[in-house]
């Protein structure tokens, strides 16, 4: 695993959904088991090129997420590797029992794409703004939860997702994220990617907060605070070894997530820290409130998902050492 961080973060030229679909089409050329499904979300999932390339391996189920998850589980029982898509709330909180029983408990092999995480749901507003999807799914045994933070990372981990037998939830930004990694970067599911060494404090970020965390670390360096930064794109299994070592070596941790701070990345990190090397932990994220409608930049400010907030919380974590 080797993550090469860009020096400047600009909006990626290609949407994440297009990266995912192109990578899926490429993999599917040599892997006939891969199938794709939507719940009347083909216009959003980016699966049109897949449907064009493999019309017999694509199913639009209609607006019936529970049935779609079950159909996918059944297909995987006879060797298929289904990728199913809908918006995050509808393939997590709406179908938790189907994911739990038909997929994970049954030891089947379903890849679930939940798009528009947290504030990236923007104009769809609070009803469609999942601040809870990873938290709900995290208490399902055996499931793997990932949130790719940029196109390079997504493309790099897709073959691992295909090869990881079991239920995987991919928390997918659909549109253009800030590009964080140089081509050639490699990642390993289950391992947090070290983006910046540091000895005073550790910032553990995911998704849209990774770029913010790196900006915050640069600001903090000017103040003499040397922050270690991880991209914890795998939320489950969480990289307990990296977190325990960070707690021991830097003595303070800040978590950053586009999600409720209860049950999500911050919660997962706290669980590791408490049972290994207790140290101060500050959590940047959604303080157990519902989403709202607005532009993504407005919502980032509204919910304090910013480099400035990370700087503030990091100063606080360091002061608590």
């Amino acid at each position: 695993m080797s993550a090469i961080v860009k020096t400047e973060f600009e909006k990626a030229p290609v949407e994440m959904r297009n990266i995912l679909c192109a990578a899926l089409v490429e993999q599917s050329k040599t892997n006939p088991a891969i199938v794709a499904m939507d719940a009347d979300t083909l216009g959003s999932s980016g699966f049109k090129p897949f449907r064009k390339a493999f019309p017999d391996r694509y199913i639009n189920c209609g607006i019936q997420e529970a049935n779609m998850i079950g159909v996918a589980a059944g297909m995987s029982a006879v060797g298929k590797i289904p990728f199913v898509h809908s918006f995050g709330p509808f393939v997590s909180r709406r179908v938790y029992d189907q994911v739990f029983l038909s997929c994970a408990y049954s030891k089947l092999n379903v890849k679930i794409i939940g798009s528009d995480p947290g504030v990236t749901a923007a104009y769809n507003g609070g009803t469609h703004m999942p601040f809870e999807d990873m938290g709900i799914l995290r208490v399902c045994p055996t499931i793997t939860l990932v949130e790719p933070s940029d196109p390079v990372q997504l493309e790099n981990i897709l073959p691992q997702i295909i090869d990881t037998y079991g239920t995987v939830y991919i928390r997918l930004m659909r549109k253009n994220p800030f590009s964080v990694y140089e081509q050639g970067s490699t990642f390993e599911i289950g391992k947090a990617a070290l983006l910046r060494p540091g000895k005073d404090v550790t910032i553990i970020a995911s998704g849209i907060l990774v770029a913010e965390a790196l900006k915050a670390a640069a600001t903090l360096a000017n103040e003499g605070i040397d922050a270690r930064v991880f991209d914890s794109f795998t939320w489950k299994p969480i990289d307990a070894a990296a977190i325990a070592a960070a707690a021991s070596e830097t003595g303070a941790i800040v978590t950053c997530e586009n999600h409720n701070i209860i049950g999500g990345l911050g919660g997962a990190v706290c669980e590791v820290v408490c049972s290994t090397n207790p140290c101060p932990v500050e959590r940047v994220g959604i303080p157990d409130i519902f989403g709202e409608v607005g532009t993504e930049p407005w919502l980032r400010e509204r919910f304090k998902l910013t480099a400035a907030e990370i700087v503030e919380k990091t100063r606080k974590a360091v002061s608590r050492k």
């Binding site: 998850i69 297909m75 995987s76 060797g79």
Partner: peptide, 13 residues
């Protein structure tokens, strides 16, 4: 209810 959907998936495959 869940057996219905998984059966459909097996049959569809």
């Amino acid at each position: 209810g869940q057996g219905v959907s998984v059966a459909l998936g097996v049959a569809a495959a």
